[in-house]
Design a binder for these strands. Sequence first.
DNA 1: GCCATGACGTTCC
DNA 2: GGGAACGCCATGG
Length: 129
Amino acid sequence: MNPFYHRIYRVVRHIPKGRVATYGIIARLAGRPGAARTVGWALSALPEDNDVPWWRVINAAGRISFSGSDHSAVLQRALLLREGVRFAPGGAVNLGTYGWPAEAYDTAVASHKRAASTRRSRRLKGLRT
DNA sequence: GCCATGACGTTCC
DNA sequence: GGGAACGCCATGG
């Protein structure tokens, strides 16, 4: 397995219980700023018997990106709720409160960033349709 | 080796 | 606040 993946997993393991981190932050801490997509790849490649708290990794909008109807997304929400992470009415996590490391997040820009992920979902939706 | 794709992000309009 | 374009890195065809 590539060392990048190992670094990513190592960083994810450092996320404390009850906290969440974004793909971008993970990529940055793993030494590859901008490689947020690769983080998603690494997590999707996780074996079943892993000790990586993948559910603590979410996107910059504070939401669970992949297929909201997918069972994995439901599981993720359940695991986070079990750890005390609350979801806002819109279904997003307040990164200013639960983000890790906390100083890396700015609630002001978070609301602006959430719009970014809408394009991909729309594009994917269009291609798959 | 080029092209398309994806659990994403930042910037510009 | 919402939408579109571009960038990023690794993988699979």
